[in-house]
């Protein structure tokens, strides 16, 4: 309303919140360039050695590799299962729908520590050895609800008479899903996959119970937090991953936006 360009209380508040949100992260990044092993002020000068040494750290590299594999596999499986569930609940209102919906979203309201220990008990009882693979199986459980929610919100956004049109033109139901529905919801599938991947890649609580002697990146990081001399290298690794995550998220967000006409509000 007013033409005076004084920052409002709201704008000042947002600025303060952002300052607090970014301060710890900026602090970490500063230390990843600090030429000293202890993370205290005053700084000891600029160095790139922590970044350069990353390549020599075989243990860390294998943890990163494990995290990628688990993240990729669990997200792929969760997206497939979540999509099947989403189509079932969005397109059919049959007995069993309510029960399925309740069970499939329940992992959202169960603390991870409980998911972790209950699977630990099961794997021990059935005799499945603990490994990065078993942690990946658990990550599918926490990812399914997110994948389902993203995909089903996209499904209710377009009418199912497109499937009927495809069937009217001679496609079987499954062909209609494959040739019409899936291509239309493919941005949602990609979004679901990316979200699940990000969650799995960063997940520590469940993995800490289930990885056995394997390590994932968070598990490795946690083990290193007790050895202050190795910390700068861990932080350097995290800084690289954060940069990659940010650029991929920003690019996918940009792609998503440029794919649709600008909204007028």
């Amino acid at each position: 309303m007013s033409k005076i360009k004084l920052p409002s209380i709201g704008a000042i508040y947002i600025f303060l919140i952002c300052a607090v949100l970014y301060a710890p992260i900026i602090l970490l990044i500063i230390f990843s360039f600090n030429n000293g092993t202890s993370l205290v002020f005053p700084l000891k000068g600029f160095t790139l050695q922590w970044y350069q040494k990353l390549g020599e750290n075989a243990e860390m590299l294998s943890a990163v590799q494990n995290s990628f594999l688990i993240g990729f596999g669990s997200s792929l499986l969760a997206t497939i299962l979540g999509t099947m569930g989403a189509i079932a609940i969005a397109r059919f209102n049959l007995p069993g729908r309510g029960l399925f919906l309740a069970v499939s979203t329940m992992p959202l309201v169960i603390p991870y520590v409980i998911l972790g220990v209950s699977l630990l008990i099961l794997f021990k009882e059935v005799g499945i050895p603990l490994s990065a693979f078993s942690a990946g199986l658990a990550h599918v459980i926490i990812s399914i609800p997110y994948a389902m929610l993203i995909v089903s919100s996209r499904l209710v956004g377009f009418p199912n008479n497109l499937e009927e049109a495809a069937m009217d033109l001679g496609a079987s139901y499954w062909e209609a899903l494959l040739r019409v529905t899936l291509p239309i919801i493919s941005p949602a599938l990609l979004a679901a996959f990316l979200l699940c991947f990000t969650m799995s890649f960063d997940e520590f609580a469940i993995a800490s119970f289930l990885v056995g002697t394997d390590t994932t990146l968070p598990v490795y990081m946690y083990s290193q937090l007790r050895f202050p001399t190795r910390l700068p290298m861990v932080i350097a690794m995290a800084a690289i991953i954060m940069t990659l995550t940010m650029s991929s998220m920003l690019i996918s967000e940009w792609l998503r936006r440029s794919g649709q006409p600008p909204t007028r509000k």
Binding site: I87, L94, R97, V103, I114, L115, V117, S118, I121, I144
Partner: peptide
């Protein structure tokens, strides 16, 4: 009937996975 079988086909894989790796562990914990 067609809808029923489509629904079942779609829902079974996620349902079985959730049963085996979510409900069953909670049961075993009990």
């Amino acid at each position: 009937m067609e809808n029923r079988s489509r629904f079942t086909t779609l829902i079974m894989p996620p349902a079985i996975y959730l049963f085996l790796l979510f409900l069953l562990p909670l049961g075993v914990m009990l």
